[in-house]
Design a protein around this nucleic acid. Structure first.
Lengths: 253, 253
DNA sequence: CGAGGGGTTGATCTCCTTCAACGGAGGTGG
DNA sequence: CCACCTCCGTTGAAGGAGATCAACCCCTCG
């Protein structure tokens, strides 16, 4: 039986391999990372803004989110992270957090020291590039959400969120694009799409009424993928789901 | 007399040095990058979505922007780039663009081949980390804008934009936070803050009416920095304006 | 002189917020 | 086992921030 740590690390590795080639040795190096498991119950902060972190956190179980917080107390989720996601890989190069990381559901994370990650980067250029690429995709998602929030209505935004999470979940082996667990409350969904929970609730009903999808007790079921994609104007290209073969990495495996 | 290319490269280097330590050799390596100058007149696309790019573009003169485009034709600016900014550094690791890059004003850019950048990365780990760090800051900006667009009103958003650009300009040596050139139209500003140009116009008048700032013919003049910062809830931490001294780089210079 | 891009203004509409109340499910303690 | 509490979801009514539509102005440039 595989330990939880091993399982999380191999999920993480699989995610890296989606976009970056790594040779045997490099893969072993990733899998032999060590860290301590920490459990958080829903709504607990894992990292607070301004904090200087010495370790990155790899999600083992549950859903965690990155938040931007306003003076008024309003919050905006800027990223969801599920099992196998390293939620603050970028803290290796920018250790002072400008955001908070919070457990959205009950969650288990594995804290991995920057020292170890730095060592991997030093020894294996391909890993450095893989990490860089991963954070770049994170940036792509954010750019897409800037567009969604700036220029789309509530219905499209929610549709887009469920499309994006669907593809992410499928890629992560945590369900299919049509059925997956998203253990978040409507209020948290609202914080992700920049709406109030009241209006999010009404729009979710509308999506259900149109027979497009259901979101109930942390479970998403999408009934008509194509119609949802059309409504969301969802184009998965920004998620970079295949390796850029002729790129910098071609010479490195 | 310094050539335009040299000037742009030293601006770029200065920007890197703000956040990352590079030794003499590494600095020379950056400065000896070669590229061709290309001029674009306002509103011309430099990179189109889906395009696979083989070179990154360093701004020499003028203002360029990254856009996300909706099916309806609406656009959202996700980044402004000024002299010394490498607008698609991330394309080195993710060469297929999911966005478009457009000249907002008349602009000159220097196209630098990925091959050269890859060589720098191969030979100097510190440069790879500096590049990674730079794109990470880009991601921070996007995360902040996700928050601004999702949770702030028009007045705060515009105020935030002018604060952010002020600090960026000052850091880049292109003016002070209180007075700088931003050769954009009100419509382009609107595309950045997720509003219509009509409403942007009204809010700009409100900002002027409150004696906070003026924005006229591409020039920003801020009258009360502190009040503007307060209105915007602007906290420059996310821009990472100093080097994280104990981080991974400490060992590399 | 005309054309076009950018800026400005007014009137109307609508999407989303705000406020307030209620319902249900699960957990906890008596 | 029931009573209670709290979190989450749901509903209604009213208000507001910003969109939309449509002029008109000014300036520059051909």
């Amino acid at each position: 039986l595989e330990s939880k740590e091993q399982q999380a690390l191999s999920r993480f590795l699989a995610k890296l391999l989606l976009r970056s080639p790594l040779n045997e040795e490099q893969q072993r190096a990733i899998l032999s990372l060590e860290g301590r498991l920490v459990r958080y119950s829903a709504h607990r902060d894992i990292v607070s803004p301004g904090e200087r972190v010495q370790e990155s956190c790899l999600v083992v179980e549950g859903l965690i989110g990155r938040f931007d917080q306003m003076a008024s107390g309003q919050r905006q989720i800027t990223a969801f992270h599920v099992a196998g996601d390293m939620s603050d890989l970028h803290s290796v190069v920018v250790p002072t957090a400008a955001w908070s990381i919070t457990a959205l559901s009950n969650a288990t994370v594995m804290m991995i020291s920057h020292a170890q990650l730095q060592q991997l980067i030093d020894r294996h250029e391909a890993i450095a590039l893989a990490f860089w690429r991963e954070t770049t995709v994170d940036g792509s998602r954010l750019a897409k959400w800037t567009g969604n929030l700036g220029r789309k209505g509530a219905l499209s935004r929610l549709a887009h969120l469920f499309c994006e999470m669907g593809i992410s979940m499928e890629m992560a082996g945590l369900g299919t694009r049509l059925r997956y667990e998203l253990p978040a409350t409507q209020e948290q969904i609202a914080d992700a799409v920049g709406l109030t929970s009241v209006h999010t609730n009404r729009v979710l009903q509308e999506l259900r009424g149109e027979d497009l999808l259901t979101f109930r007790s942390g479970r998403v079921e999408i009934l008509y993928w194509d119609r949802l994609v059309a409504l969301a104007e969802f184009d998965p290209n920004y998620l970079v789901l295949r390796r850029p073969d002729e790129s910098v990495n071609a010479r490195l495996d």
